[in-house]
Design a protein around this nucleic acid. Sequence first.
DNA 1: AGCAACTGCTTGGTATACTTAGCGCAGGTG
DNA 2: CACCTGCGCTAAGTATACCAAGCAGTTGCT
Lengths: 114, 114
Amino acid sequence: KEDPASKLGEFIRIQRELANLSLRQLSEMAKVSNPYLSQVERGIYKPSAEVLKQIANALHLSAESFFAQAGLLDEDVANPAGGQVEAAIKLDPRLTPEQKETLMRVYRGFLGDR
Amino acid sequence: KEDPASKLGEFIRIQRELANLSLRQLSEMAKVSNPYLSQVERGIYKPSAEVLKQIANALHLSAESFFAQAGLLDEDVANPAGGQVEAAIKLDPRLTPEQKETLMRVYRGFLGDR
DNA sequence: AGCAACTGCTTGGTATACTTAGCGCAGGTG
DNA sequence: CACCTGCGCTAAGTATACCAAGCAGTTGCT
């Protein structure tokens, strides 16, 4: 019960039953074997990210909600908008490392003001 | 290049070098072995979702952007193209309008340099 | 020079994600 | 009754994610 893996499994099973799908039906849609899906739902195995995505798509649910259920997205909610700016800067291929460094410093300086 | 796994690997390597971290340093922070991280960066293996999350956290990046890079979040902001930085700045509630203006000017100045 | 402390990488193994074959049970059919 | 057809699950195997040990190259210090 405490196990996060079985929590994800329960979640999947509930969603599957809500959609009135059999284990085999869903397993075929998600392109995994039915025994494996069974084991995932019982928390024996934790599926890879790709399998998780395929299951989410098969159930017409967002991949994010699945990742969240799997405890994979619980991270730095501490800086919700702030992380966005830093991430965007780091991701920009048109900036040199030094320029990124400078931008970061300016940005963080502003945040410190507040 | 064609391989999506190696695309993720490149992304990780670039982010790691941007942070001025050695392979071993990052591997220790992300709690994986350094040879494995090396292989991930070269596209030989694709990391599990949990490892991906740990790497993202170690680099202070959002897990979402990593999942997007890994092709696991077909939806939203997969595109790291330039407009992202400006959008993120405008959306940050912790910045005053004047500070946003300044950041924009610095950012655009850098882009003009190249 | 030569040792020390780094860098990234190769090798060989273990753990775990995942599959194919098949079991036992519950409804319907004829 | 016998005979399907579906359900979920077990068992045994294969593929792959991941680790510990160690190697070659580079840098720097004495």
